[in-house]
Amino acid sequence: MAQLTVLILIQNKEEGLLSIADHREKSLVPVLGGAKVIDYYIDPVLSSPFDRIKILIDRDMTGIKDYLIYTYNSNKIRIISEKDIFQSFLDLLRLKKGDGMLILRAGGLFLPDWKDFPEFLKKIPSGTYKITTKNKHTIGYFLRETKFARKLKNFGPSIDSTSPKTDQLWDVLVNAFETTAKIKEYDAKYLGLLTAFEYYTVHFSLMRNIEEFNNYRNYLSSASVNDENLARILGSGFVKNSHISSSCSIEGYVEGSIIFSNVKVGKNARVLNSVIMNNNYIGERAVIQNAIVCDNSELFSRVSPNIGEDARIGEDDCTGANVLYPGQIYGGVTLIGQNVEIPKGFKISRNCYIASGVDKSTLRFRNRVKVGDSVLPA
């Protein structure tokens, strides 16, 4: 019987995400409360009619390799991490007659009807196809052709050993078949996550339709929690129109926001229209609005807040864009990088960027960060 395989290429870099993607592949960026980008591909495929999943990664991508081995234990999954990644890629593309292979890049959120999508692919005849959404965004490539690998052999010498190879392999596919592959449209949502601003807006786009949001999360085994890990909204806490992930403690006011796991919101603190990623502690009376606060790498709950008491983030004029990164930060969104501590009473305006690893003492020398300004590590 003909088999249907999914080949997933890990995306390494996405410069437009700035600090959101620091120290990790883009496929490991957490979204929608904590599940990684790669989880939105693997979990649904495991419970769908696809026969096999093959994941191609660079040999030096130890972070995502460890994550996949630790998180997934299935005979349907095979992780390929060879020295000659291009030859491994060609070997994977040698299909038996009638077999089909869907090639995806785990760089954005691909959100189809996973029960219907394999049936759609099974009806496609022999050939090479570019699968797009109705609005012409490329989802991936589908092959039902045994001689496909021969067409790519001449691209091998163009692979640069100093750059992420899986990113280059995707470019090879695009260059080889962008104009020659037949186009098949499928009605699905694809969210690219190309910039910090898009990362912000994607969360609220899905939050506006909570039923759709929960439907996508239901595919994810990594999104499940037990009663011991449920969030706690304490006496003075109040939550409105927000998504609160596991192991959070809310004593302040949260509205229109997405709070990832292990976040504390102190008494009388306010979080409005923001994305607060893992392991942050927002001090008492602090105000965060229209912001992304990236995750903190501490393994245990913080004793003292990394967003200091009475700090104010994301206020003032929302027009314009960040001066240094106008294509990534605009629309009034402020980005606070990983492992950043904001001093007590410190003020950060809108369209600002505090890069990962900026030292607390660096901020103390300033009264505030003005609209559109950035603070980078010394």
Rank of each mutant, 00 (worst) to 15 (best):
M1I: 07
L4H: 05
T5Y: 06
L7H: 02
L7G: 01
Q11T: 03
G16Q: 00
G16Y: 01
G16W: 01
G16S: 04
L17G: 04
S19D: 03
S19H: 01
I20C: 10
E25P: 10
K26Q: 12
L28Q: 10
V29Y: 00
V31L: 12
V37Y: 07
Y41G: 06
D43T: 09
D43F: 08
I53K: 11
I55Q: 10
T71F: 07
I79C: 11
I80C: 11
K83S: 13
D84P: 10
L92V: 03
L92C: 11
K96F: 08
K96Q: 14
K96G: 14
I103L: 15
F110M: 05
P112D: 03
D116I: 12
D116L: 14
E119K: 15
L121D: 05
K123G: 13
P125C: 07
K130A: 15
N135V: 13
H137Q: 15
R144C: 11
K147Y: 12
F148H: 01
F148K: 01
F148Y: 10
A149H: 14
R150T: 00
L152P: 14
N154C: 08
F155Y: 14
F155P: 02
P157G: 08
P157T: 01
I159A: 08
P164W: 02
K165H: 13
L169P: 07
N175D: 09
F177G: 10
T179W: 03
K182A: 15
D187S: 15
A188D: 07
L191T: 01
L191C: 06
G192L: 14
L194N: 13
T195E: 09
A196Q: 01
Y200V: 02
T201D: 05
F204G: 06
S205F: 07
R208E: 11
R208W: 00
R208L: 07
I210H: 13
I210M: 14
I210T: 11
E212C: 01
E212A: 01
F213A: 00
F213P: 02
N215L: 10
S222R: 09
S222Y: 03
S224D: 08
N229W: 09
G235H: 11
G237Q: 02
V239L: 12
S247F: 03
I250K: 07
G256F: 06
I258E: 05
S261C: 07
S261F: 07
K264Y: 08
G266A: 05
L272N: 10
N278S: 14
G283F: 01
N290M: 06
A291C: 12
V293I: 15
N296T: 05
E298R: 11
S301T: 04
N306L: 03
E309L: 12
E315A: 15
D316A: 15
D316F: 14
D316L: 15
T319H: 15
N322W: 08
L324W: 06
P326G: 08
I329F: 09
Y330C: 06
L335E: 02
L335W: 03
I336P: 05
I336D: 05
N339T: 00
K347Y: 12
I348M: 08
N351Y: 04
A355N: 05
G357W: 04
V358F: 02
D359W: 05
F365W: 00
N367M: 08
N367S: 14
R368M: 14
L376R: 03
